[in-house]
Design a protein around this nucleic acid. Structure first.
Length: 502
DNA sequence: AAAAAAC
């Protein structure tokens, strides 16, 4: 801050504001073509991770970045990469060879597609060509594009290796490697593939690794593949978005589909992702919602790639109101300003809870994360509470009557609850960030929700919005210590050269 | 436990 102030000409007769003047993209020395693309999109100021990452990447250094989704991570590495490739345009390689110069790896196809769209947008005024490469799609067009020459490839590991085997891709001149969502790639067992891919790259190269968390496995991966990396950490890891109101409803397992349907109707939700732990569960729920006239689609790994892409596209353009997804959609997907996310199942991985609810309340907007909780999920809930360091009070879903023949045995529970002395009809909804940032798209569904004459069946037991309590620093460590360490992956240890346990 | 990812 003081640097900026002292940099001002002394004779400037203006009052220096308390806050340092915000950094602008122009300040990084990016090429005019890149600035023009940013300007096209109306981007002026970098996010914190962009402000940190761009200069470091421009210097050619390796990066270990911890960043949640929604932090602008993609631009944080794409912009400087484009700049670096432009700067060294014709220096190497005969045009005939068309070597790939930057490789970006992601765990899921949808994420690859999205990153590719960003790269395309940022490089549109440059001569650089980019291509997304993933499975489930015909290889022929990819092969043709590769033959024509591309400088930047965004890929999922499997299909990339497929191309390698077919000798349709040349990675011998790849100077920059990005591993996006590296922790997820490890979870998914991509380590051997990563190893194989890295072996194809030149020893001299720049490595950027991004991960939502700094687990021991990730640190080990970083130690193995990165060279004197600069660590960039934005936003405390394992923290949930502060402007997300988290609510947990206790519902019988068999009534969960009806409960989701109830919540969607009750709240008048027009834009919601529902996460299911299973593909079959996702399909069933989507089918039920459709049969009830809700515009819903499922997205998961058993769907064809074209179905997956269509579902996502239709959800983004509003044709579909409810996207029922497995964790294929838990991370990274940039779907603007979801007012609400529903966990049909609590995730098996506590970490995924954070990722799932990260689909809402992004970029300064507020959101609701509603989770259904049945008795069998008690342990999952405890895991989640440990991770986010927040205790939930599961609420009854007031006014909800499961349809079909399975209501009888539960009716008395419900009555008991409705009798309970709560006339806090006027109780305010859980507080949320009062205003959204200027320029944030106005949210049709939320206003519809607000306008709907909700019969104040508002859950009186709403859980407090998660707030990093002032005492966090103290209790954090205690809690962290109680969290059992994740079992080391033997495969991982073996591949990284460590002694496999047992 | 389940999901994801190449054919």
């Amino acid at each position: 801050m003081s640097d900026n102030q002292s940099a001002l000409p002394t004779e400037t007769p203006i009052v220096i504001p308390d806050v340092a003047p915000a950094i602008r993209f122009q300040d990084f020395g990016l090429a005019p073509e890149i600035l023009k693309a940013l300007n096209d999109q109306g981007y002026v100021h970098p996010t914190p991770i962009q402000a940190e990452a761009i200069p470091v990447v421009l210097k050619g250094m390796d990066v270990m970045g911890a960043a949640q989704t929604g932090t602008g991570k993609t631009a944080g590495f794409s912009l400087p990469i484009i700049q670096l490739l432009m700067a060294h345009a014709n220096s190497s390689a005969s045009p005939a060879r068309h070597p790939v110069r930057a490789l970006i790896l992601t765990p899921t196809r949808e994420l690859a597609d999205q990153v590719a769209a960003n790269v395309k947008a940022y490089s549109r005024h440059t001569p650089l060509r980019s291509l997304v490469v993933f499975g489930g799609m015909d290889m022929t067009p990819q092969t043709a594009a590769l033959r024509g020459g591309v400088e930047i490839v965004i890929a999922t590991p499997g299909r990339l290796l497929d191309h390698v085997q077919q000798k349709t891709i040349n990675l011998s001149q790849t100077q920059i490697l990005v591993m996006d969502e590296a922790d997820r790639m490890l979870d998914m067992g991509f380590l051997p593939d990563l190893q194989r891919i890295i072996n194809l790259l030149p020893k001299q190269r720049q490595n950027l690794m991004f991960s939502a968390t700094f687990s021991p496995e990730i640190k080990k991966l970083a130690a193995t593949f990165l060279k004197d990396p600069v660590t960039i950490e934005v936003a405390r890891s394992n923290a949930t978005a502060e402007n997300v109101t988290q609510i947990i409803y206790k519902v019988e397992e068999e009534a969960k589909r009806d409960a989701v349907s109830f919540i969607i109707r009750e709240r008048g939700l027009k834009q919601v992702i529902v996460f299911s732990n299973t593909k079959i569960g996702a399909s069933r729920l989507a089918r039920q919602l459709e049969s009830e006239g809700v515009k819903a689609s499922a997205i998961h790994g058993d769907k064809s790639q074209s179905e997956r892409m269509q579902a996502l596209e239709q959800f983004k353009n509003g044709t579909i109101e409810v996207l029922v997804a497995t964790d294929v959609a838990a991370r990274g997907l940039d779907i603007a300003e979801l007012p609400c996310v529903i966990n049909f199942d609590l995730p098996y991985n506590a970490e995924d809870y954070v990722h799932r609810i990260g689909r809402t309340g992004r970029a300064g907007a507020s959101g609701d994360a509603i989770s259904l909780f049945s008795d069998k999920d008690a342990r999952l809930l405890v895991d989640i509470e440990k991770m986010i360091k927040h205790k939930f009070v599961p609420a009854e879903l007031i006014g909800f009557t499961p349809s079909s023949g399975r209501t009888a045995e539960r009716s008395h529970d419900r009555r008991a609850h409705e009798r309970s002395p709560r006339k806090d009809e006027s109780a305010p909804r859980p507080s949320r960030a009062p205003e959204r940032s200027p320029g944030a798209a106005s949210n049709g569904s939320r206003s519809a929700y607000a306008a709907a004459p909700r019969k104040e069946k508002i859950d009186p037991f709403f859980t407090r919005p998660y707030e990093p309590a002032p005492s966090t620093m103290v209790s954090d460590n205690k809690l962290a210590d109680q969290v059992p360490a994740k079992p080391q992956k033997h495969k991982m240890a073996a591949l990284l050269g460590g002694a496999p346990k047992r």
